[in-house]
Amino acid sequence: SSPEYTKKIENLCAMGFDRNAVIVALSSKSWDVETATELLLSN
């Protein structure tokens, strides 16, 4: 995975989300952090 994707994963994990959930959310939202965060918060 690219450093850009890794940084997005790390940033969301730092907010307390599960790493696997973060990866699923990001990949399902075309790696857009904002919409992935909304998805994680709604679960």
Rank of each mutant, 00 (worst) to 15 (best):
Ala36His: 00
Leu26His: 08
Leu40Val: 03
Ser30Arg: 11
Thr6Pro: 04
Ala36Ile: 00
Ser1Ala: 07
Glu34Tyr: 02
Ala14Lys: 12
Phe17Pro: 08
Tyr5Trp: 00
Ser1Leu: 14
Thr35Phe: 06
Met15Ala: 06
Ser27His: 14
Asp18Leu: 00
Arg19Ile: 05
Thr37Met: 15
Ala14Gly: 08
Thr6Glu: 07
Gly16Met: 01
Ala25Trp: 00
Asn11Tyr: 01
Ser2Met: 09
Ser27Glu: 15
Lys29Arg: 13
Glu34Phe: 05
Ala21Leu: 06
Val33Gln: 05
Asn20Phe: 07
Glu34Asn: 10
Val24Met: 13
Arg19Trp: 04
Asn43Lys: 13
Lys29Val: 13
Lys8Ala: 10
Ile9Arg: 01
Asp18Met: 01
Leu26Cys: 09
Tyr5Asn: 11
Pro3Gln: 14
Ser27Leu: 07
Ser1Pro: 07
Leu40Trp: 01
Asp32Ser: 06
Lys7Cys: 05
Val24Gly: 15
Asp18Cys: 01
Ser2Lys: 03
Ser28Ile: 14
Leu41Pro: 06
Ser28Pro: 02
Trp31Arg: 08
Glu10Ala: 10
Phe17Lys: 03
Arg19Lys: 10
Leu39Gln: 11
Lys8Asp: 05
Glu38Tyr: 03
Lys7His: 10
Glu10Val: 03
Ile9Gln: 05
Glu34Thr: 10
Asp32His: 04
Leu12Ala: 00
Met15Asp: 02
Val33Ser: 07
Thr37Trp: 06
Glu38Arg: 13
Gly16Glu: 01
Ile9Pro: 00
Thr35Lys: 15
Ala21Ile: 05
Ala14Asp: 07
Glu4Phe: 03
Thr6Lys: 08
Thr37Glu: 12
Ala14Thr: 07
Asn20Asp: 15
Lys7Glu: 12
Val24Thr: 15
Val33Cys: 09
Leu26Asn: 07
Leu39Met: 12
Gly16Trp: 00
Asp18Ser: 10
Lys7Gln: 13
Ser1Gly: 10
Val22Arg: 07
Asp32Glu: 08
Thr6Gly: 02
Val33Arg: 05
Thr6Cys: 04
Leu39Gly: 05
Ala14Glu: 11
Glu10Thr: 05
Asn11Ser: 14
Trp31Val: 06
Leu12Trp: 00
Ser27Trp: 06
Ala21Gln: 12
Leu39Ala: 12
Ser30Tyr: 06
Thr6Arg: 11
Pro3Asn: 12
Leu26Ile: 02
Ser2Ile: 03
Thr37Arg: 15
Met15Ile: 14
Glu4Tyr: 06
Cys13Ala: 08
Asp32Met: 02
Trp31Lys: 09
Leu12His: 01
Asn11Asp: 06
Ser28Val: 07
Asn11Trp: 03
Glu4Leu: 03
Thr35Ser: 15
Ser28Tyr: 01
Asn11Thr: 12
Ile23Asp: 10
Lys29Phe: 04
Ala21Thr: 08
Asn20Val: 09
Asn43Tyr: 07
Trp31Thr: 10
Arg19Gly: 01
Leu12Ser: 05
Asp32Cys: 10
Ile23Ala: 13
Trp31Asp: 08
Lys29Ala: 14
Ala36Lys: 02
Thr37His: 10
Leu12Thr: 02
Leu26Lys: 08
Ala36Asn: 01
Asn43Gln: 14
Glu38Gln: 15
Ala21Ser: 11
Ser28Asn: 12
Gly16Pro: 02
Trp31Cys: 06
Val33Lys: 05
Asp18Val: 00
Asn11Val: 08
Thr6Asp: 12
Ser27Cys: 09
Thr35Arg: 15
Leu40Gly: 04
Thr6Val: 01
Val22Cys: 07
Ser27Phe: 04
Tyr5Leu: 12
Val22Thr: 10
Ser28Glu: 15
Lys8Met: 09
Ser1Arg: 09
Cys13Thr: 15
Thr35Trp: 04
Val24Glu: 15
Ala21His: 07
Ile23Arg: 10
Glu34Arg: 12
Leu26Gln: 11
Asp32Gln: 08
Glu10Trp: 00
Lys7Leu: 07
Thr37Tyr: 11
Met15Ser: 06
Val22Tyr: 00
Lys29Trp: 00
Ser30Thr: 07
Lys8Gly: 03
Leu41Gln: 11
Ile23Trp: 05
Ala25Leu: 00
Ser27Met: 11
Gly16Val: 00
Ala25Arg: 01
Gly16Gln: 01
Cys13Phe: 05
Glu10Pro: 00
Val24Leu: 13
Phe17Glu: 08
Leu39Asn: 06
Lys7Ala: 13
Thr35Val: 11
Ser30His: 09
Leu40Asp: 05
Pro3His: 10
Glu38Ser: 12
Trp31Met: 05
Ile23Thr: 14
Lys29Ile: 02
Ala14Gln: 13
Ala21Asp: 15
Arg19Ser: 08
Asn20Arg: 13
Leu39Cys: 11
Ser27Asp: 12
Leu41Asn: 12
Ala21Gly: 04
Thr35Ile: 10
Lys29Asp: 03
Asn43Phe: 02
Asn11Cys: 08
Tyr5Cys: 09
Ser1Met: 14
Thr6Trp: 03
Asn20Ser: 14
Leu12Lys: 01
Leu40Lys: 06
Asp32Tyr: 10
Val24Cys: 07
Val24Tyr: 10
Ser30Val: 01
Cys13His: 01
Lys8Ser: 07
Asp32Val: 04
Trp31Leu: 03
Phe17Asp: 01
Ala36Leu: 00
Arg19Cys: 03
Glu34Ser: 11
Val22Pro: 04
Arg19Ala: 04
Glu10Met: 05
Ser27Lys: 15
Phe17Trp: 08
Leu40His: 01
Ser30Asp: 13
Ser1Gln: 06
Glu10Arg: 04
Ile23Ser: 11
Phe17Tyr: 06
Met15Glu: 05
Asp32Pro: 01
Asp18Ala: 08
Ala21Val: 05
Leu26Trp: 00
Pro3Ser: 13
Leu39His: 13
Leu40Phe: 01
Ser27Tyr: 03
Asn43Ser: 12
Glu4Gly: 02
